[in-house]
Every structure is written in C-alpha cells, then in structure tokens.
Amino acid sequence: MSIKLEHVNYIYSPETAYEIHALRDVNLEIGQGEFIGLIGHTGSGKSTLVQHLNGLVKATDGHVYFHGEDIYAHGYDMKKLRSRVGLVFQYPEHQLFEVDVLSDVCFGPKNQGLSREEAEERAKEALQMVGLSEEFYKQSPFELSGGQKRRAAIAGVLAMEPEVLILDEPTAGLDPKGRDEILDQISALHREKKITIVLVSHSMEDVAKYVGRIVVMNQGEVMYDDTPREVFRHYKELEEVGLAAPQVTYMMHALKEKGFAVDEDATTIEEARDTILKSLRGRL
C-alpha cells in the first residue's frame, strides 16, 4: 500500500463568507503499481485531493499515510515525500523558467541534492521518456510548441524519479494527437517503469482506455471507486453529476436495446469491436 487517505476533510477559508467544503470524508487507498483515473467535473475536489497526496495542502481533518507513515506526524520529511510522490499540475508548462529545456528539467533533481552530472543524466533520461530528443536540450522552453512545453514540464517531474506520479489534467488544451501521445507515454511509463500513476481528468473517454481503476469524485465526496466496467454501468448516474461514460458505452447499450447480443460493459473501441463482431457472427 503506498498511499492511504483516512477520513480526509478539507475546507477552504474556514469561518469566513467564502468558506468552501472541498473534500468530505474521503477514504482512499492507492496501491503500488496501480493506474488510477481520478474523475470529476470542475469543482468536484479532484485537484484539491491530489494536492493532499504529496502534502502540499494539509487536510483540515483526517490523515494521510505514505507507506504506513503519517505524513502529518511531527518531523516528517515533506521534501522527501514530494520527491517520491511527483505531482504534475494543470498546465505544467506555466512553471517553466530556465534558459534551456535541459536546465529546467534539472531543477527537480538538483533540489534533491544530486550533482550536476547526475541531474543531467536523469534529465536526459526523463526527456527521452516523454519523447523530446537531443535537439531540444539547448532550446529555450518558451520557444517550444504547446505539446512540447507540456512534455518538457512533465519530464521536469519525472526526472525526480518518483514512485508515484500524479498528473492533473495532463491533456487539457491539447489537440487529439498531442493528447494521445501524452497518454500513450504515461501508459508506457506505467508498464515499463512500474510507476504508480494517478491520472486526473474530467473525460471518461481519455481514461477508459488506460486505467485499471476509476475513482469518481462528486462535490468533494468519492462517488464510485471501481474498475472502469463497473463504474460505467452507472452511466445514468454519472450523467446526473455532469459526467458521461465513453461513447462506446452508449453505443453498446443502444445496440443491446435493438436486440444485438453484445456485451454492454465494453469500455474501449477494441472491446466493442470484438463483441460486435462476435454478436454478428452469432447471427449468421
């Protein structure tokens, strides 16, 4: 068990006119090597929740454990926690500041106390993982395209070699090609490096293809926490809270209603293809 949240509550500006109860009694366990999709519409508390996972925001009430240790305990090394739980914020390209891409990616490892050579080595490795080749090393990060900037910023967190990588809407504002590239690279990281990944998104479509487990947030509470199949069965309830199941789910349900013997729990296009073909073959 790498991260565990117990009865976490968080209130913004408590006891003022602007009080917001952002998280309500959240209980969550994130296991080693999992690939989790954290889903909720705007203002559901998902961004607040992920900031609890590396101690950037302290819960108003409740506990967060990392490898069984209470991170709010006196003397707990927060800096170390943050290098083991990497958090990529929304629009991470807004945090780029160095003169060239390589130095920017080195910022994290250097803060971990690594030497210049070690940091550069890690940076190069991270840049390779996100698909930025050597020609970009000495370019100013501000001259890159939107998708390249985003990848450079993700590399900045990856270079710290975290055990858990949290990405807050990593595909926001990218075109479909850029979105698929980034998601494929994240998925490869999970497969090859065995990094635990928490992917925050409001799009079921994005996550259905990759994750093994979906946590749905609604108004600061965990609404569902299950495999994609199980969660998408509640597609009507999801619609009520402003979310939607992948289009495949709707199509499968529509086909089922028309009398086709398809598996309505198919969540990806590949699964859908297989079950449709199967049902058609059955008819012939």
Binding site: L56, R82, S83, G86, L87, P92, Q95, F107, N111
Partner: peptide, 30 residues
C-alpha cells in the same frame, strides 16, 4: 506556481537572504 515549484523540490523558506532571493527566480520568471 509556488506549489508547482515546491512539488519539484523548491525551497522558498530556508537559507540566507541571497539564497532566498535566488530561490525566487523559479517563481518570478513564470
């Protein structure tokens, strides 16, 4: 931005005046 840089291990609190001023670069540039 402060939170994002803290997540990358930045330290805005400790150090002497010069170090503190230097640590503001990752905040001020963005």
């Amino acid at each position: 931005i402060m939170k994002a840089q803290i997540a990358r291990g930045a330290d805005f609190e400790s150090g002497n005046l010069l170090q503190k001023a230097k640590s503001l670069v990752p905040l001020l540039v963005p």
